[in-house]
Design a protein around this nucleic acid. Sequence first.
DNA 1: CCTCCACAGGAAGCGCAGGAGT
DNA 2: ACTCCTGCGCTTCCTGTGGAGG
Length: 416
Amino acid sequence: MTDSSLLDDVFDKFISNVRIFKDREVLRHDYIPNRLPHREQQIRQLGEKVAPLLKGARSSNVLIYGQTGTGKTAVVKYVLGRLEFKAKEFGAPIKLCYVNCRLAGSEYRTFASMCQALGATVPFTGLSVGEVFDRLKVSLELSGTLFMVVLDEADALIRTCGDGLLYELTRMNEVLRKSKVTLIGISNDLRLKEFLDPRVLSSLSEEEMVFRPYDADELRNILAERADAAFIKNALSEAALGLCAALAAAEHGDARRALDLLRVAGEVAEREGGNVVTEEHVREAEKHIEHNRVVEALNNLTLHSKLVALSIYHLDKTGSRGAITGEIFDVYDELSGELGIAPLTQRRLGTLINELDAMGLLNAKVVSMGRYGRTKKIRLEIARSLIRDVFAADNRLGRLVDYEPHCLSKRSDRRH
DNA sequence: CCTCCACAGGAAGCGCAGGAGT
DNA sequence: ACTCCTGCGCTTCCTGTGGAGG
C-alpha cells in the first residue's frame, strides 16, 4: 500500500465513521450545558444573591468552596450568563469579569484582566501594580457600572501572592462614587480562610456556599444527560457509563474527570472502529489519560527538573526503598557535571523536588532518622519504564539514562 | 534526659528580561 | 538614553526540628 492510499484510508475511515459521536464538544469541561443536574439548589441560591444587581444595588460578596469538578465554575458561569442576559433586557449597568487566578498567575495580571474587561488597555508588563490598580479605579469610576468580578481558583493566587489584592478590592467600594464592585471568590481549598486576613475574610465571605462532591448516582445522571447529546443513539453501553461514574466517584466525585473518561473512551472506541463504547474502552481510556498526563508533564520539565527526576530514577534502581535529598543531590551534581552544566544549589533542588511532588510524579515525605538527621524520603510515583522511554528520546539526556553514577558505587552505607 | 545530625523551608536579595514614562 | 517598574529563577543565610544514640 502506498503512503497516500494509506492516508486516504485513515481519512475515509474517519469521515465515514460517524458511528460514535454526534457532538464531542459537549463532553469538554469548559462546555456549559443549559441544565446542570443536582445543582438546582446552588443555582437558585446564587441567583438570589446576585439578583439585587438588576435593580442597580450592589450584591453581597460570595465565597464558594468545593473540590475540583463539583460544578462551581459551571454554576457561576451559568448564573452570571443569565444575569447578563437579564441585565440587557432591563438596561441594568452590569459588567462581568471572569478571571482564573491560577492561569493569570500574578496580582498584576489579575488586575490587568479586570482592566481589560472594562475596556482599558494595559501592557502585559512594565507598570507597577499600584499603577494598574489606579487605572482600574479610574476606568471603573468613568464607566459607572456595577462591576462583578469572579476570581476563580482564588486560593492559588493567595498562596503565591498573599491577600493584598483581595484587600484592595474589598475596600474599593469605600472610595468609588459612581460604581460598585462585587466579588465572587471560588476556591478549591476549604482551608482558604486560614490564609486570609480577618478583615478580608469578613467582607469577602458575606455569603458562603459549599459545593459537595457528586456521588456515583449523581455523576451517572450528569453523564447520561451529556452523553445523550454527545453520542449517537446506542453508541454508549450502560455499563461503560456506569464505570465512568464509578471511577470518578472514587476520586472525590470529580465530574470533570468523569467527562474526560467518557470522551476519551469514545475516542478509543472510534479509533478501534467499534460502534459501541464498552467498559473495556473506559479502562483503556483511564490508562490513556494517565499515560498522557505523565509523558506531557515529564517532557515539559526544565532541564534541571529532568535531571532531578533522572537522579531519582538512578537511585531507585539500586533497590533501596526511597532516596533521600542528600543522595539525590550527589547524583544530580554528577549528572550535571557529565552534561557540562552548572548545578543548582541543594536549597533550590529541595524546591524542585517539592514541585515534582505536587505534580504527582513522585512522592516526598519528611522523615526523621534520629541520629542520622532529618530529611525527605522520595519515591517515584510513576513507572520506571515511562521515565526511561521519555528521557531516552531526549537528545541531551538520552545518554545519561544508562549512565552509572560513580557516587552510587562508593556510597557511604547509611543504615536505612 | 539531652545532643546533634542532615536536612526542611522561610526571608531577603540579586541579576535578568521585558516594558513604561520622560 | 535613562530610570523606574515587575516577575522569575536562583543563591545566600538563616532558624527550626524529630528522634536514635549517648
